[in-house]
């Protein structure tokens, strides 16, 4: 088990290292010189040269990368090229908000998705299954800005029961922010809900067909006991991994949803950074997102290992 965790950890660190190379090189694709971007096209060559010196842009690219990576790991994420402020406190403040929204969404769509998936599996090919599968497939395909705007149209504008705009102050406490989280959370959830439901459905169907489920039925155990003890224990195991893989979707969904609702999260900060071409900000946010994604996958792997006797005890 410890060897398993170490292996997973090693893989994830390696992956993150390579991902950092990609992020760094992509942002270096920027046409023209960063110094020019910052100072505008009318800057004097002397000013540009001074800034290049200051930013270390005259050094070889490898050195720049190494410097950037090590300072990122140390916690020195640089100074915004636009606002000239430290980016780390700026991002961390937004990260809290994004995590708040993400947690509310996860707490909503994971249990509901599992429930729907199990119901669909138990009614395989019957009406309930067709309805759940069809609707979840439809929602899984709808971009967040479409569902988000339709929800705003119905719940905020026509019925006026929830706020249409979630552009709260970044430091708002969770309790005060909660009403503003509901619509964005539903929006983010709809895409992932369908995904979780579909995956849960298929793994549950597999387990329902397994010989050991038949054996449990033939033992005359009460139906609910067969379901909770024999079926779900096995069929929800892959769901752990599925949820973690879905975090990538969730992050994409958060970016769009934050834009739709004007919610002050990391996603909106990223869009802002891209619009202003704030290289430092983009790099830091991207690295942070990759780290969050990778470690949630690691957590899922470890949880899977703990729940699966095959890995926990070795094969």
């Amino acid at each position: 088990m410890i060897a398993y965790i170490l292996r997973r950890l090693g893989m994830i660190l390696l992956t993150m290292l390579l991902a950092s190379v990609i992020i760094f090189s992509v942002t270096q694709l920027l046409p023209g010189d960063v110094a020019h971007v910052i100072l505008g096209q009318f800057a004097t060559p002397q000013a540009v040269e001074n800034l290049r010196e200051e930013l270390g842009l005259n050094r070889p690219i490898i050195v720049q990368y190494w410097d950037w990576l090590t300072s990122f790991i140390r916690g020195d994420w640089g100074i915004s090229m636009v606002s000239r402020l430290e980016v780390r406190p700026m991002i961390m403040e937004r990260l809290r908000n994004s995590l708040m929204l993400a947690s509310v969404s996860l707490l909503f769509y994971v249990p509901l998705g599992i429930l729907l998936g199990v119901i669909a599996a138990l009614n395989e090919d019957r009406l309930a299954d067709q309805a759940i599968s069809g609707i979840s497939m439809a929602f899984a395909g709808l971009p967040e800005f479409v569902t988000g705007l339709i929800l705003i149209g119905i719940l905020a504008i026509s019925l006026d029961i929830l706020p249409a705009n979630s552009s709260i102050e970044p430091q708002t406490s969770f309790k005060e922010a909660f009403p503003f989280l509901i619509l964005p959370a539903i929006t983010v959830s709809l895409t992932s809900l369908g995904y979780i439901a579909r995956m849960t459905r298929s793994s549950t169907i597999d387990v329902l067909r397994a010989d050991y489920t038949r054996a449990a039925d033939m033992k005359g155990l009460p139906r609910w006991q067969v379901l909770t003890k024999h079926v779900l224990r096995n069929s929800l195991l892959p769901t752990v991994t599925v949820v973690a893989m879905g975090i990538g979707w969730l992050i994409g969904g958060l970016i769009v949803t934050e834009a739709v609702f004007g919610y002050p999260g990391v996603g909106r900060l990223l869009i802002y950074g891209i619009q202003r071409r704030d290289l430092i900000l983009i790099q830091a946010i991207s690295m942070l997102i990759v780290a969050v994604y990778s470690f949630s996958n690691l957590a899922a792997d470890i949880l899977y290992g703990i729940l699966n006797p095959r890995i926990r005890l070795g094969g």
Binding site: Y212, M218, G220
Partner: peptide
Amino acid sequence: LRKVWGARVTMVHQDPSKAINPSI
């Protein structure tokens, strides 16, 4: 029927590696 299954009728399945729940 469920009260008959297991109490009065039982079954031994073909492939023992599949008929035993892997996580119990």
